[in-house]
């Protein structure tokens, strides 16, 4: 058993290494200096306190969107709609942030709650349709992504502003930015959201692993028929899973609206936070801790990549590396097979 656990831990690490090696091979193949490339990548993510701040800022929404996808997955649902939930959450948070003038202790929680509720509603729709009418959640969530995008753009342009391209900035009482953090990280865009993200991860772990409700959700994910036979309300659990998943997605939007940007502009396309969340969740094995680690990896690579042109390497290389890491993790079977063969040889 303990060696099994060891291998489970080893597979993602080997995948990461293989991905980086593949990246190095590509760099060499195109005539770049791979050592310089990786040095630039590292410095871009962790080179000094400013870059660390930027990296943490990037990780924050990834944790939320990864948790959103993972939570639904654990109940056997594929929520491709996190993207849309991010957009409605972002919009709701900014709207509350702009429209009211309240003391911070009320305003900030209100704005965050608005984002969570907006996302939850956006998750409730596919949950309800899936539970009551057996409509495939994948289609409904894809459709709701576009719906969210167009409605949000319409509201920003015609309701919150007068034909403007972005809302006003939120009042400081609704902002997640902190003067202290900004000064500490040499004026990076890092904000307090990371604390909320970590709390959310702990919440997900506790809720799924330690409560009765969480047990039911996981049971439904494993086998709907058995859960039903055991007396669980499958329909209610499906809806609940999508609502919580959607709330996480909405909070990812709040991180952008209340933290990174402080406003919402008309979006020409998707934010990709939700789609990247799919990769984060899968990379993290759909567990809370895994999501935090995967979001960390993903965020560092994304931010670090921006510094790679220093070594002449196109930033897009990182997308290839990320994709290959996902491939290798997915193909864990072959890595396990290889490891067990090596072990057998050692025993001989």
């Amino acid at each position: 058993m303990s060696s099994n656990k060891f291998i489970n831990l080893l597979v993602p690490i080997i995948s990461l290494l293989l991905g980086l090696i593949a990246g190095a091979i590509i760099m060499v193949g195109f005539g770049y200096n791979a050592v310089e490339g990786f040095k630039a990548l590292w410095n871009g993510a962790f080179g000094d306190i400013y870059f660390i701040g930027e990296t943490v800022r990037q990780i924050t929404p990834y944790i939320f969107s990864g948790l959103a996808v993972a939570f639904a997955f654990r109940t056997g649902l594929f929520n491709i709609g996190v993207e849309g939930q991010v957009i409605v959450g972002w919009l709701a948070a900014v709207w509350v942030g702009v429209a009211f003038d309240l003391p911070m202790i009320v305003h900030l929680p209100l704005a965050i709650a608005a984002a969570a509720i907006a996302g939850a509603i956006w998750g409730f729709i596919p949950g309800l349709l899936k539970a009551k009418l057996r409509v495939h959640e994948v289609i409904v969530t894809i459709m709701l992504n576009y719906t969210a995008l167009y409605i949000a753009n319409h509201l920003v342009r015609n309701v919150i502003t007068d034909k403007g391209d972005r809302t006003e900035s939120i009042s400081s009482s609704a902002s997640l930015k902190s003067q202290w953090l900004m000064e500490f990280t040499q004026y990076s865009t890092m904000h307090m959201g990371i604390i909320l993200a970590l709390i959310a991860a702990v919440f997900m772990w506790f809720y799924l692993e330690k409560t009765t409700k969480g047990f039911e959700l996981r049971a439904v994910g494993f086998n709907q028929h058995a859960s039903k036979y055991a007396g669980m309300n499958v329909e209610k659990n499906i809806i609940l899973a999508m609502v919580i998943s959607g709330a996480f997605g909405g909070l990812a939007g709040a991180m952008e609206g209340l933290g990174t940007f402080g406003y919402m502009s008309v979006q020409s396309g998707f934010t990709n936070i939700g789609f990247d969340g799919i990769a984060v969740a899968l990379l993290g094995g759909n567990t809370a801790l895994g999501v935090v680690l995967a979001a960390g990896l993903f965020g560092s690579l994304k931010v670090g990549a921006l510094n790679m042109p220093v070594a002449g390497v196109p930033t897009e290389l990182v997308d290839i590396i990320v994709a290959l890491i996902i491939f290798f993790v997915a193909s864990g079977y072959i890595i396990r097979w290889f490891l067990s063969r090596m072990k057998r040889r050692e025993n001989k």
């Binding site: 590509i26 997308d319 290839i320 996902i326 491939f327």
Partner: peptide
């Protein structure tokens, strides 16, 4: 491999290769 994971990797890889 998990077919969903592999498919997601395909999406990332295509965009990465194309843009690179």
């Amino acid at each position: 491999a998990d077919q969903v994971v592999s498919g997601v990797a395909i999406n990332f890889l295509a965009l990465g290769i194309g843009l690179f």
